[in-house]
């Protein structure tokens, strides 16, 4: 629809200067509605299930969401820069397997983590380089590398599980830090870092510009392909961290395991309000998206819904949430 406003309409001007303006804009953002929807969802479960409103339960939710949540955070950065990365699930598997092998070889947790993270960044850069050099859409490239990385994980392990039994390593996935499950601490730390990167660095701003209009970004002197490559590297890095947490928690690495997180992570990012076309999105939104998905799983669990039914309902609820969001946006 093309309206022709004779006078341009801006958002209502909030009183005060920069800081207050920011608060004003946050209040007007769709995220406020998402938060309200989340509270509603939580209220329903709180009434329906006895043990929902307990600290332990919320820690459970955190623990259950950390793996796909960590991946979703990096994915948010890539998507803002206009690169939909669908290969991250395969990167999780590959990095988890490599970490497990280092553990099995007796190299210790630190070496295992270092190898996994380095490889994660490397695979992300491979995505970025292919996108930049071949000038192809990131979705196509990562659809391809999804097969390549994922296939390699199966080929390398021959489909067999790789055990990773090391106490220090296991603590990454099962331990607690300051009374909070370590995976949750890791997720929140990454969220903070990435939120700061997006909001307070020139690189973060360039991600938004490149995602919004790559051609215009190029014309103002931004090397769009490299910004995208860097964003994909960040997505690779968080996928690697997610892979490490996943394997550390399970104590064993399996090819194909990371790929299962595809829907959860992408859904968290999209529910969080990041545009699939790039150019807009916030880490806070993705955190809310993660919380929504985690709470749905958890609430259904508490209500005694079987895991099969959960699979069925998950898709329905995700679609329903997106439809509701659309309808509200249309009314606004």
């Amino acid at each position: 629809m093309t309206a022709e406003p004779s006078t341009p309409i801006g958002r209502p001007e909030p009183a005060g200067g920069g800081g207050l303006a920011l608060i004003g804009r946050l209040a007007a953002a769709p995220l406020a509605r998402l938060a309200a929807a989340y509270l509603l969802l939580a209220a329903v479960f709180a009434i329906a299930a006895d043990h929902f409103l307990t600290t332990d339960n919320f820690l459970n939710i955190g623990r259950a969401t950390a793996v796909f949540g960590i991946a979703a955070l990096g994915l948010t950065v890539a998507l803002i820069a206009g690169a939909l990365d669908v290969s991250f699930g395969a990167v999780m598997s590959v990095c988890g397997i490599l970490a497990a092998e280092r553990i099995a070889a007796g190299d210790g947790a630190a070496a295992a983590v270092a190898v996994a993270l380095a490889v994660g960044v490397g695979l992300g850069l491979v995505n970025g380089l292919l996108t930049a050099v071949l000038r192809l859409d990131a979705l196509i490239v990562t659809l391809g590398t999804f097969s390549i990385f994922g296939g390699w994980a199966f080929l390398h392990t021959n489909g067999a599980p790789t055990p990773a039994s090391d106490d220090a390593f296991a603590r990454i996935g099962r331990g607690e830090t300051l009374g909070i499950p370590t995976p949750v601490v890791i997720m929140i730390a990454i969220a903070l870092v990435l939120a700061v990167v997006l909001r307070w660095t020139g690189f973060g701003q360039r991600c938004y510009l490149v995602g919004d209009n790559p051609r215009a970004a190029t014309l103002v002197g931004i090397r769009a392909a490299w910004v995208r490559a860097a964003a994909l590297a960040i997505s690779g890095l968080t996928a690697a961290i997610a892979g490490v947490v996943m394997v550390a928690n399970a104590g064993v690495a399996n090819a194909g395991e990371g790929e299962r997180q595809l829907l959860n992570a992408i859904a968290a990012v999209v529910i969080g309000g990041t545009a699939l076309a790039g150019g807009s999105g916030l880490i806070v939104g993705t955190l809310l998206g993660i919380a929504v998905l985690g709470t749905i799983d958890n609430g259904l669990n508490l209500l005694g819904v079987s895991s099969t039914w959960q699979d069925v309902l998950k898709g329905v609820i995700v679609v329903f949430a997106l439809v509701l969001d659309r309808i509200r946006r249309r009314d606004a």
């Binding site: 992408i266 859904a267 999209v270 959960q310 699979d311 069925v312 998950k314 898709g315 995700v318 997106l322």
Partner: peptide, 27 residues
């Protein structure tokens, strides 16, 4: 309907229904 009537991105919409369909198959 989900894609055309409600304008949900087809990629995410069908990724979601895929999970539901698989679950229904198991049921």
């Amino acid at each position: 309907t989900v894609v055309t009537r409600f304008g949900i991105n087809p990629f995410i919409a069908t990724l979601a229904t895929a999970g539901t369909l698989r679950g229904l198959a198991f049921l």
